[in-house]
Amino acid sequence: MSWFTKTVFSTSVGRKVIMALTGLFLCTFLAVHLAGNFQLLHQDGGEAFNLYTKFMTSNPLIKAISYVNFAFILAHVVWGAYITYKNKSARSVGYAVNNPGKTSSFSSRWMGVLGTMILIFLVIHLKDFKMAYLGITKDLPMVTYTLENDEKVIVKDMFSEVNLEFHEPIVVGIYVIGMIALGFHLFHGFQSAFQSLGLRHPKYTPIIKTVGFVFWGLIPFGFAIIPLIIFFR
């Protein structure tokens, strides 16, 4: 094995770098994804959202980033599973009485379970929307929009599909639960990633904590509120 693979596979600190870098990349992805999702709230019959969807699925740069994104999700899951397995096997006999709640946060102790909930959510999410958009599970109708420069574009009507799904109580429920899991995952995960990377200092750790609130609080809230607004609208 080269020094690099040895570092990221067989040392605890190296493994955590993979978790931290993939995790933080996924965080930036979340921010961009949410900004896009807000197009759903325009009361324009879906024009803004459909044009945005077209852009996100055809722009070569965005497409390239989306492949990186899938690879990173996979790496994050594989490394996360390996770390969790390693850590479980470091203590075969547990305590008869244990009080971990007095010394560590709930989120930090349940990262593996929270991550698995997010993974299940992701599978459902991709099946519902990505596969529908790609024409695998559904044949979406086309719509034509006239742009400001009088150019006409024909795009898939993803909005009506999302709109339909977000009127299903079960789908909305799964979304809200998925986002609660994400919030807890990032409550620990976001700031933990900086610690894993060795970035801790009285100068900037307070900023990491503040920005962390955006990621564990505001962003999951934003994702969850959109299906709720559409459902009750």
Binding site: S10, T11, S12, V13, R15, K16, I83, K86, N87, A90, R91, P100, K102, T103, S104, S105, S108, R109, M111, H188, S192, Q195, S196
Partner: peptide
């Protein structure tokens, strides 16, 4: 690693 200790996941229970 060789001794079989686990990976740090920054729970901070140790310092506590």
């Amino acid at each position: 690693e060789e001794e079989g200790f686990g990976n740090c996941t920054n729970t901070e229970a140790c310092s506590a």
